[in-house]
Amino acid sequence: MNDKKNTLNKQKLNKELKIQLLVFIVTLLLTVLAFVAVASEKFAPTFIAPFIVTLAVVQVIFQLYYFMHLKDKGNKEISIFLYGGLLIGVLTVIACLFIVWL
């Protein structure tokens, strides 16, 4: 019984490791893609700015869910903290940009 549970756990861990390696490669590719897109200077600033910010958001979601384990069971309460912090964070950035100094 214990042995069976142990093998299952090991399979689960190895699967998680494979996903993490994949996520790492995708993250690296996205970083290089964003860098090359900007360095080529072929795109208009109105396109490139939202494009690279979107790439960053995608990378952050990968990091949060796969490296910081938000996808795991029993982490719902924790995502409340995360989204709470993000909400206040985004509001702060907007406030700084459009209200405070302008």
């Binding site: 903290f81 995360l82 709470g84 912090g85 206040i88 964070g89 702060t92 940009l97």
Partner: peptide, 13 residues
């Protein structure tokens, strides 16, 4: 970490 997010949001803003 939630508090840290706000800290860095302030600095980035």
């Amino acid at each position: 970490l939630c508090g840290e997010t706000v800290l860095f949001a302030c600095l980035i803003g």
